[in-house]
Design a binder for these strands. Structure first.
Length: 950
RNA sequence: GCCGGGGUGGCGUAAUUGGUAGCCGCGCCUGCCUUAGGAGCAGGUUCCCUCGGGAGUGGAGGUUCGAGUCCUCUCCCCGGCACCA
């Protein structure tokens, strides 16, 4: 017999009607009788249809909104539409419809769908970014930024999408492709509007630290801002032949400690000095050709091919300000014009890119930092003096077999395997020392040194018998021997210490035991720069010092400047598209930009426009716009034809929610003081670096203008996971795995669908979940079980046990909801339901209390079954007190393994518990006659008996 | 490559933050009910086992009376950044 299933369509419609009649969700922002709580989710783009992702975004934040209201909070839970943007324009081009009509129709459709979801959003605060009453204030704020010098009009190379026919922000380009349509972007030089977010880079970074955000979100922002600390150093440029001073080049480096190792200088192809020095170069043609080739390449093409290219600035040299060395100057596109100073000092020994370039162009590689390994078995001791010793390590190869000689040590050094090694004695060259050691330790003569290794390395260890720390400054050699048969035997005193062994090349690294031995061998084969820290060599008066410790002194000594540099670029906001907020600027007859005065705002988007994509801004085709400018400003004045990036619209919408209809101000100062910052902002991880950073920048700029009361817009930020298609792949129309929620809502009901989404996993973590119908079905079964209990209600007293069960549930469900862990909150509901079902009789009061716990999760069904006054959503969250019982369960362990559990009075002493435990059969068996050496008792939790001997 | 977050049953997940590993759900198994079941109900379900137990949270060590949780090394997955000097 099928269980009675409720008619969800009927119940939902009735509940929604009731909420509207009671006007349940209009927030009185002035109300000061309750704590304000601003719960925000990212407002949707009106694409036309509500998809399952919208449900995940809106319905789950709605759970929290409802919970907070029941907690007695005054909750602001608003919604609006991010209504400007490309899809409308593309639809317009394709289907010959008006973008405005298209957008308005979509919004109307989505409003209806959102209403049927049963979310408790406050429609009275709705904002629509394409509405003149909204964009009037986007324009007003832009004008404010312009007045502050935070909006700049300048020529710059920009990313251009040939398909969308518009400029893109750096952030909208990924892998060299337009983020929106996937078309390869090209670079163009245009005069564009920029918001100078770089001026706030430092504050955006610093103010991030105290925010209670998840580390990965903060880290993504930090990486985007990309702070690096370093120095600006200046190199004089001279004519190579006459030493005539030509100019000077400033470089940015994060490694000024390696200045003595700078063996050449590199300028970005776009660097202004390149043009300036062209006349002095003897290979001007070559340079021009290189510059042109580079200019024709997209940034992607440049970075895709990691093979270094470049050309020397022939006849020009730079003077290393530290060493005085005259070093060559190159032009290469691995140096970016847009980062740092567009010029670098190249230290091939200690920078991977410089190393690759130096190898290719045969430039000198000069080591100035010696990386230092520490012997982990014998580390330097605090307080001992450090003594530096020059040492050598020899890798000796037998030419006839190709094997290498190693020494297996005996005695106190048993188990250690090294190469032939030893100290460099007074008056010896390292080469001589190497040959001497070969003779001494291996007893070999007729050996030749074939190579001195390029890098010097070091190892630190403690020589405890001498009370000193040693630093072995080590030169490496490769030596070869032809004929082993004619060799003399090793001195007996040496052969006692070690045995000479010959091993294959591939075995060497595995056999070497002390860490620096291994390191030297690896360096021998390492064709790469040394980027590790260590001590300085060949660095004038700084030689011997720790590189990090000496760094800033070195900067001072050559008149360098300590600076911080940021990777973030200014925000390009000009778009050559129609469906956006017109940039509120006009140009005087001289071409200077002027912000449009507030009495002319909103500066309306003209309607007599041909918006087919031609590469010029559609607004340029408007007759009305030109006439408007002439009428207001006079002959010779011209309009700005570009529109704003839609991220500008969405950078302040949460301020407008507080006063959406205000005609005299962008928001309300008093209400902002009361409601900002947003308490919790829930959204998608795709907005971590753009929207979130832009909104923070806007807030700070407005804060500095005293237009908003806080420097940060959002307190908590939660990023939700992703709902995948049933096939586990990201939903996309092309894959045909898009879930349309309407179908499932019709079949299972809105409550079941939202509970399924809530139960799927923790909401505040970046997981991804495939859509699974069985899960929706399970939620419907749960709701059917709830519904089935409605007729079991009797007017009897609630038993203490049931009362306690509900109190525990209220506590758990509340706590989990607080942390957006709706999955475990629902688990709490299921446990509570089981307890209600198991009760002999179901007191009405108990079931009604359960409905209050259910209300945020299944708002329609809870409303339908609720018998109290008004709406269940206006009821308060149950505040059951979880009482402690007199009896407690103690887990008994023997040697950390669980052997049983005993129930004792809460007041029982340790002795009593131990005595009880020792009578327990499994415990007796586990102890097995052994004596108890130790007893660990955590009252009320655990007893651990640790056995000693028999 | 660098940075961040993770690896727990067949699956999604849970674990009071150092104290009973596997809650809740899916799936699966058994039984009941039913003309029927892609319905409902009850029970079971980490693995191995000689039914006494034993093993177990990616792997290897360590700290601790006790480790999914802390430390060291290592492997793998996801996300971000990436010629940023």
């Amino acid at each position: 017999m099928a269980k009675e299933r409720f008619n969800h369509a009927q119940i939902e419609a009735a509940a929604q009607k009731k909420w509207e009649e009671l006007d349940l969700y209009t927030t009185d922002l002035e109300d000061s009788s309750k704590d304000p709580y601003y719960l925000l989710f990212e407002f949707p783009y009106p694409s036309g249809d509500l998809h399952i992702g919208h449900w995940y975004a809106f319905a789950l934040t709605d759970i929290y909104a409802r919970y907070l209201r029941m907690q007695g909070k005054n909750v602001l839970f608003p919604i609006g539409f991010d209504a400007f943007g490309l899809p409308a324009e593309n639809a317009a081009i394709k289907n010959k419809v008006d973008p405005k009509e298209w957008t308005l129709a979509n919004m109307e459709r989505m409003r209806g769908q959102i209403r049927t979801m049963g979310t408790s959003v406050d429609w009275s605060k709705e904002v629509v970014t394409c509405d003149p009453s909204y964009y009037k204030w986007t324009q007003w704020l832009f004008a404010k930024l312009f007045e502050q010098g935070l909006a700049e009009h300048r020529e710059a190379p920009v990313k251009w999408c040939p398909k969308d026919q518009t400029v893109l922000a750096n952030e909208q380009v990924s892998d060299g492709k337009c983020e929106r349509c996937g078309t390869e972007v090209v670079e163009r030089t245009l005069t564009q509007w920029f918001l100078t977010i770089t001026k706030y880079a430092d504050r955006l970074l610093r103010d991030l630290e105290p925010l209670p955000w998840r580390e990965d979100i903060k880290e993504a922002q930090r990486a985007w801002i990309g702070e690096s600390e370093g120095a600006k150093l200046t190199f004089a440029l001279e004519r190579e032949t006459t030493a005539e001073s030509l100019a000077s080049a400033t470089v940015f480096t994060t490694r000024p400690d390696t200045i003595f190792g700078a063996t050449y200088l590199v300028l970005a192809p776009e660097h202004p000095l390149v043009e300036e020095l062209l006349a002095s170069a003897h290979n001007a043609e070559e340079i021009r050709a290189y510059r042109d080739t580079t200019a024709r390449k997209t940034e992607r093409e440049r970075s895709e091919n990691k093979e270094k290219t470049g050309v020397a600035l022939g006849g020009v040299i730079a003077v290393n300000p530290a060493s005085g060395e005259r070093i060559p100057v190159y032009i290469a596109d691995y140096v970016l014009a847009s980062y740092g100073t567009g010029a670098v000092m190249a230290v091939p020994a200690h920078d991977e890119r410089d190393f690759a370039f130096a190898k290719k162009f045969n430039l000198p590689i000069k080591q100035v930092v010696v990386p230092c390994a520490v012997d982990p078995k014998n580390p330097p001791q605090e307080g001992f003096v450090e003594v530096k010793r020059d040492t050598v390590i020899v890798h000796l190869r037998d030419v006839s077999t190709g094997k290498f000689a190693l020494l297996d040590w005996h005695g106190t050094l048993e188990g250690i395997t090294t190469a032939i090694m030893g100290g460099v004695e007074e008056g010896q060259t390292p080469e001589e020392a190497a040959l001497a050691e070969i003779k001494e330790e291996a007893g070999l003569t007729g050996v030749r040194i074939v190579e001195r290794l390029p890098w010097i390395t070091a190892a630190k260890y403690c020589a405890s018998h001498k009370q000193e720390n040693r630093c072995a400054h080590t030169y490496g050699f490769i030596a070869e021997v032809d004929d082993l048969s004619s060799q003399t035997a090793v001195d007996a005193s040496e052969s006692d210490k070690h045995t000479l062994v010959w091993v294959d090349e591939s075995e060497v690294a595995k056999r070497l035991t002390p860490i620096h031995q291994k390191q030297v061998w690896q360096l021998l084969h390492a064709e790469e720069a040394l980027t590790d820290d260590g001590y300085l060599i060949a660095s004038g008066s700084f030689t011997g010092r720790d590189n990090r410790e000496a760094m800033w002194e070195m900067v001072d000594s050559i008149g360098g400047e300590r600076v911080k540099n940021y990777r973030i670029r200014d925000w390009l906001v000009s778009r050559q598209r129609y469906w956006g907020c017109p940039i509120p600027v006009v140009y005087d007859p001289e071409g200077n930009p002027h912000a449009i005065a507030s009495e002319h705002l909103p500066w309306l988007l003209p309607e007599d426009v041909d918006f087919s994509p031609t590469g010029v801004s559609p607004l340029a085709t408007s007759k009305e716009l030109k006439e408007r400018v002439t009428r207001i400003y006079g002959e010779g004045w011209t309009p700005e034809y570009d529109t704003l990036d839609t991220f500008v619209d969405s950078s302040w919408y949460f301020l407008r929610y507080l006063d959406p209809k205000d005609e005299h101000d962008f928001s309300d100062q008093t209400l902002m003081k009361k409601w900002l910052p947003v308490d919790r902002y829930s959204g998608g991880s795709e907005h971590t670096t753009m929207h979130l950073l832009y909104a923070r920048f806007f807030q700070k700029a407005l804060y500095d203008l005293a237009l908003v009361p806080t420097a940060e817009p959002f307190n908590e930020r939660f990023n939700r996971g992703l709902i995948l298609g049933p096939d586990g792949a990201k939903m996309s129309k092309s894959k045909g795995n898009v879930i349309n929620p309407d179908e499932f809502v019709a079949k299972y009901g809105a409550d079941a669908v939202r509970m399924y989404l809530a139960f799927i996993g923790p909401y505040n973590e970046p997981g991804s979940y495939p859509w699974n119908l069985d899960g929706v079905d399970a939620m419907r079964r749960f709701l059917d079980r709830v519904y089935a209990l409605k007729d079991a209600q009797v007017d009897s007293e609630v038993s203490p046990a049931l009362s306690q069960a509900l109190a525990r549930a209220a506590k758990k469900i509340g706590g989990e909801s607080e942390r957006f862990k709706f999955n475990t909150a629902i688990s709490g509901l299921m446990i509570a339901l089981k307890e209600l079902e198991a009760a002999e009789t179901l007191p009405r009061e108990a079931f009604q209390e359960f409905l209050r716990l259910l209300a945020p999760f299944a708002p329609h069904l809870a409303e339908h079954l609720y018998e109290g006054e008004g709406s269940v959503h206006a009821a308060s969250w149950p505040v059951g007190v979880v009482e402690e019982t007199d009896e407690i369960t103690v887990i008994v362990q023997v040697n950390g393994k669980k052997r049983g559990e005993i129930t004792v009075q809460k007041t029982a002493s340790e002795e009593e518990v131990v005595a009880l435990a020792r009578e327990y059969e499994a415990v007796i068996k586990a102890v097995d006659g052994a004596s108890i050496a130790k007893i660990i008792y955590v009252p009320g939790r655990i007893l651990n008996l640790v056995t000693g001997g028999p």
